[in-house]
């Protein structure tokens, strides 16, 4: 089956991202395909490249990145939710006159239409929110 995940929880303050990540690995271990993960609401903070947890703790952004690298999972971030929370790509930062940015590939800023596309494309879309 093709799976998609919707992640709406912030890293390190809500359990949703950890749950989603463990679920993602279980999906792949059962032989399914994980098409993409859509980060929405506070879930957009999963994409911040400035995330710096202690070295002996899981870096959630790196874990999502590894999922993309090893299994070609698309990592889409809602642009409206991200920008208002200060999660921003280089091109958007430039467009809005900011000197810094904190989102880069493989995370992509996209619109809600991408979530609908993911839902239509997948056999299952599972939401992780806390």
């Amino acid at each position: 089956m093709d799976y998609g995940l919707l992640v709406m929880g912030a890293p390190y303050s809500q359990p949703a991202p950890h749950s989603a990540l463990r679920f993602a690995h279980a999906v792949l271990a059962r032989g399914h395909r994980l098409v993409g993960v859509f980060f929405y609401h506070d879930g957009v903070h999963n994409a911040s490249m400035l995330m710096t947890p202690p070295q002996d703790e899981l870096n959630l952004r790196d874990a999502w990145k590894a999922l993309h690298k090893e299994h070609d999972v698309a990592l889409d971030v809602c642009i409206a939710a991200a920008l208002r929370r200060g999660v921003i790509s280089q091109s958007e930062a430039s467009r809005h006159g900011h000197d810094a940015f904190n989102l880069e590939a493989p995370f992509e800023l996209t619109g809600l239409g991408q979530l609908l596309t993911l839902q239509q494309r997948c056999d299952r879309l599972i939401t992780f929110a806390s």
């Binding site: 679920f23 279980a26 059962r30 299952r124 599972i126 939401t127 992780f128 929110a129």
Partner: peptide, 19 residues
Amino acid sequence: DMDGFVALTEQHLQSVTWY
């Protein structure tokens, strides 16, 4: 376990997450 969680999603066409 998490494997069983995935199995439940296989068995159910629809899921709703309550939070």
